Amino acid sequence: MKARNINGTSGHTCHCSSWLKHWEKFSGVTAGMCVEKTCTEKAVVGAHVQKEGVLDQSWYILPLCSAHNNKKGEVIELYNNPPFVSANVSV
């Protein structure tokens, strides 16, 4: 599975104290490592992404390290099919 890191989403907020906490709350998983396939760094942010290669244009949250979060607009290959958590805070 692949995802595209979305540009220009820093102004969006949720009530979970952080997007990483939002991902943990709604995925039921504690964030550990960055979910990029080859990365060995700790996940420190909940990054806004879109699924790559599908018609779904919804925004999702995935745990990424700082380096992969800063690769805006790039496609990243994911390790072990992590849960995509909706970034829609009204659900």
Rank of each mutant, 00 (worst) to 15 (best):
G46N: 00
H12R: 08
C34Q: 06
E77S: 15
W23S: 00
T30R: 12
A47Y: 01
G32N: 15
H12F: 15
G11D: 11
K2P: 05
I61D: 00
S86L: 05
L64G: 01
I76L: 15
S10V: 09
F26C: 07
A3N: 13
V49N: 03
E52F: 13
N69R: 14
D56A: 04
G8S: 08
A3C: 14
N81I: 10
T9N: 13
V45S: 00
T38K: 01
M33W: 01
E77G: 03
E52Y: 10
G28E: 08
N80S: 15
C16N: 12
S27E: 02
H22G: 12
I76E: 08
G28P: 08
S90Q: 06
H48A: 02
C39Q: 13
S66E: 13
M1Q: 09
W59I: 02
W59C: 04
E41H: 15
A3P: 13
K37D: 04
I76V: 12
W59F: 03
C65W: 05
E77I: 09
N80Y: 10
K71M: 14
G73W: 14
V44S: 13
I61A: 05
P83G: 00
C16Y: 06
W59R: 07
T13C: 01
V49M: 14
E24I: 12
M1H: 13
I76D: 06
S86R: 11
T38P: 01
S58P: 00
K72D: 13
H15C: 04
I6M: 15
G28N: 06
N80W: 13
C65A: 10
H48G: 00
K72R: 13
E52T: 04
N88S: 08
I76A: 12
V44C: 08
G46V: 01
E74L: 06
A47W: 01
L78H: 11
N70Q: 11
S86P: 05
C34N: 09
V75P: 05
A87K: 05
C65V: 08
R4V: 04
W23V: 00
N81W: 12
H68E: 03
V44P: 03
N88E: 09
S10C: 01
G46T: 01
K2E: 10
V91S: 03
N81Y: 08
E77Q: 08
V29Y: 15
M33L: 07
G28Y: 10
V85L: 05
T38H: 04
L64M: 11
K51D: 15
N88H: 09
G32S: 06
M33S: 06
H68A: 04
C16D: 11
K2F: 08
S58E: 11
E36Y: 02
H15Y: 09
D56E: 14
S86Y: 10
L62P: 01
G53N: 01
A3F: 08
E41C: 07
R4T: 15
S66Y: 10
K72Q: 14
K37W: 03
P82A: 02
W23A: 00
W59G: 04
T9R: 09
H68I: 04
E24P: 03
T30D: 02
N88Y: 05
T40F: 07
